[in-house]
Write a protein that binds this DNA or RNA. Structure first.
Lengths: 172, 172
DNA sequence: GATAGAATACTCGGATAGTACATGTCCGAGTGAGGAAGG
DNA sequence: CCTTCCTCACTCGGACATGTACTATCCGAGTATTCTATC
């Protein structure tokens, strides 16, 4: 029951990318510098987000990352699942039938109640994450966060974002 | 986001211990054999439950483990926290203030919205686990589970449980 | 025969190796930009 | 002056070490039982 450190980085980067204009991109190195992270390692997580179709990557000079779809259509659950994997945290290994008492397999057709309870709790967890959109995070930050910190973030984005030539043509 | 394998073992053992009579005990070796687990390793998890005041351990011959309180007063959350630790799964390391843009610390007095959203989801997870009592698991198993498997479990408990002499006097 | 003592066997508990996963780092493939040469 | 080609620098992507935490195991501390010797 411990989430990797990369989840925090992934969400922060996605929030930052939500502030870039149109389909401009932002290099991974800039994101790493923004949060004081190792550039080489952050790319690993950004790549996971790209594989999950949450981000898009543009190679070459003036390349970088951008959101693959609108921030209103990205939830925290999407990001968490992309980084941590889609498997449930609790995996029932059916130890109830590993004992020495041999019983026909037909006695275990029903899933065990413990597994059901654990999975139900995990569904509640995921449902709570699915309710939070990336746009909510950004809006809450702009409204509730400290104005100085917000201004600094905007300045950082302004400084490092790179507009794309074939921007309008690559709209999906 | 991955729970250790010991959680499953701990819950199954606790459910089994909920079926022992009065304050009889059951040795850890018997529980390990019941689920085909390594006896030496299972003791580690049982010890965690004992430290968390969920189980009681009785040393010496005819010793073993028993529930420290009624099964109605033990929830799945108690067991999960005892095994996995009480720390939240998501730990905010405040990477937002690690960047090169130096801002006064007063700008970060408010907890970051990402952390708040993650913790809220975890509260939902824990609340769902707290609603499930150990007695519910046992009752559901007795009512919905396969009668053959249930009978085999009862026979196993009957065979290995050890009544305690000073049983009634040690009632809390 | 009853009792006190010591040896014993069984239990849990903590300290000790092995392994899988997450973390952190490095180098290579690919691409667009920029500049130089030619028309 | 414009076009074309080449070189280059910058980007992401995957392959390679390292650290940590989970898993697994073994040996030691403690206690009720049990046997024996004595009263």
């Amino acid at each position: 029951m411990k989430l990797g450190e990369g989840v925090e980085a992934a969400i922060h980067c996605a929030s930052t990318l939500a502030s870039v204009d149109g389909n401009s991109t932002m290099p991974g190195a800039a994101l790493a510098e923004c949060f004081g992270l190792s550039p080489s390692y952050l790319l690993k997580h950004l790549n996971q987000l790209t594989t999950a179709r949450i981000l898009e990557s543009v190679p070459g000079p003036a390349g970088g990352y951008r959101l693959a779809r609108a921030a209103e259509r990205i939830t925290l659950l999407d990001i968490v699942l992309a980084v941590e994997g889609r498997e449930p945290a609790f995996r029932c290994s059916e130890i109830r039938q590993r004992g020495p008492v041999k019983i026909d397999a037909s006695a275990y057709v029903k899933p065990c109640g413990i597994n059901a309870a654990m999975l139900k709790a995990e569904r509640a967890y995921r449902a709570a994450l699915a309710e939070v959109k990336l746009s909510d995070i950004v809006a809450e930050y702009a409204a509730e966060g400290d104005p100085r910190a917000f201004a600094a973030s905007c300045a950082f984005v302004e400084r490092y974002q790179r507009p794309q030539k074939s921007a309008s043509s690559k709209q999906i």
